[in-house]
Amino acid sequence: MKHNDDGRRHAGRYGRFALACLLPAALLAGPAHADGWPYPGWQDDGVVRVKALALLQTANATLLSQPSATRTLQQWCAEHRLAAEPRIRALRDTDTRKPANAEIRRQLQVGADEPIGYRRVKLACGERVLSEADNWYVPSRLTPEMNRLLDTTDTPFGTAVRALNFSRRTESARLLWSPLQQGWEMRPLAASAGKPLEIPEQVLQHRAVLYKDGNTPFSLVVETYRRELFAFPLNQRETGR
């Protein structure tokens, strides 16, 4: 019995010693966000900030060059291994209502009495929400099947209306976060301070109009992209797929 008591005392001392060693590292890493941020490699230094800006500009340019944000995000998800199955899901918010104002009706080229549909969704890859979108659209310019999908399912908008072979014209594109301060190129890059890079939840916003038949607008969308675009270990090594 004494031998067992001694073993328990030794185990307790070793456990307290290990905990004391781990606490400083945990405190240095800072609090983790609910979405799992930060991920390995995203420390706050000049080189990482340059890489973050390059990634943000790449995402922005790719979204601007493609007609469907859904397909662009799916490709981004696959390339950066954000989920085991790189498939975009639309998570509908059925509680929010935002009636179309006069400016939205003007851009959609409809009168005051024309019914306007509204859809608010989050586009997720696996468990990661990559963007949130407010979408106003003209049901009379879609097929009955398209309207059914939009009204009763979580099908992403771009997927539901894909048969229209639509085009997209971006009205505005705003970076909501700048990893580097103005004039950074005239100063030495900052060394790591041993803390994670703080990235705000919203990093990029696009406002765009979708057209069918060349010049008939049928949808106006405001998309806000989130930091989960960067939810992968930076500088990860290539492994077999």
Rank of each mutant, 00 (worst) to 15 (best):
R81D: 11
A25Y: 09
W42P: 11
K195W: 02
L204Q: 04
T153H: 05
S68Q: 03
A34W: 10
A34H: 06
V138S: 10
Y137V: 06
G30K: 05
A69F: 10
E132C: 02
Y211T: 11
F166H: 05
R119T: 04
P115Q: 04
V50I: 13
P217R: 08
R119L: 15
P200C: 10
D113R: 14
R119I: 08
T153Y: 05
R128F: 10
G36Y: 13
N60W: 00
I116Q: 02
S68P: 03
N235H: 15
T58G: 03
W177S: 09
S68F: 01
N215K: 11
T58Q: 12
G46P: 06
F230Y: 08
K2E: 12
Y137L: 06
A34E: 11
L64I: 00
N165T: 01
S68G: 07
Q75T: 13
R119S: 10
K2I: 11
Q74P: 03
D134T: 02
Q205G: 02
W42I: 09
D93A: 06
F17V: 14
E171T: 04
N4A: 13
L229V: 04
L23P: 00
F166C: 07
A163P: 01
K212H: 10
N147I: 08
R187M: 11
N235C: 03
R207K: 13
T143L: 12
P38F: 04
L189D: 05
E198P: 01
F157L: 13
P188T: 06
L91T: 09
P38L: 04
P139M: 09
I199N: 01
D151Q: 15
G111V: 03
L229S: 03
L123E: 13
L220W: 01
L56Q: 14
S167T: 15
E185C: 00
A208E: 09
A11Q: 12
G41A: 08
G194V: 10
K195Y: 04
W76R: 03
Y118C: 06
